[in-house]
Amino acid sequence: MSTPLIEFKGVKTGYGQMEVLHGIDLHVDQGEIVTLIGSNGAGKTTTLMTLSGVNKVWEGEIWYEGACLNGVPPHEIVARGICHVPEGRQIFRDLTVEENLRLGAYLRSDQAAIQKDLEHSFDMFPILRERSFQLGGTLSGGEQQMLAIARGLMGKPKVLLLDEPSLGLAPLIVADIFETVKRVNKEEDVTVVLVEQNANLALKTANRGYVLETGTITLSDDADKLANNPKVREAYLGG
């Protein structure tokens, strides 16, 4: 078996003096969709924030494409192809939809290709084309989520980190968004790390999953096996 694309080796981190992750190990292979499930405050978002360099690693190492990511600044990590769609969408409210998308391609200089990908985003989410000159803040929740994902894809990432994409959205829109994620994964060979409270949905979408409990990984398995695991069923899937 080849070396994984992303590997966490005993990673510890936190905020201030409070440790949030107590040494976690996980790996993600090329082309996979891997999900992290767990309750609120388990450290899922922290894991993603640490991978994208916003949070510093205290102990342990994160490896990506055969290089250690410790101490690499966020913009550099984006440049290496890891794109993070943060929780709560975090679109730029006072920038237009198109500007938001263009910021997603901030580190790219191939103008022609950016224009093409912009069109591609609009094809993927037609509502965004209609609203391309509106300010991001005026979009509805679902539209903002679409914008956030489209913005993430504008960076032509090798790895897409998705944090709670279903939060606060209507089920129909959620299904739509997860279809897109699967399609992007398959058609554009984008590896996806998915953090999701809706464990049911996450395990249906993903190939493999990790269960995170208060900063420690307690279970890891194929997604369908996790979905049938009685403990997981009881804790996260409503019995």
Partner: peptide, 24 residues
């Protein structure tokens, strides 16, 4: 300009801007 867009983005949300690859 592109850099100006990055400046505006940073003013609104520095974390998200850095996730886009903006050098704060």
């Amino acid at each position: 300009t592109r850099f100006g867009m990055a400046m505006r983005a940073t003013a609104q949300n520095p974390t998200a801007a850095s996730l886009m690859g903006v050098r704060l």
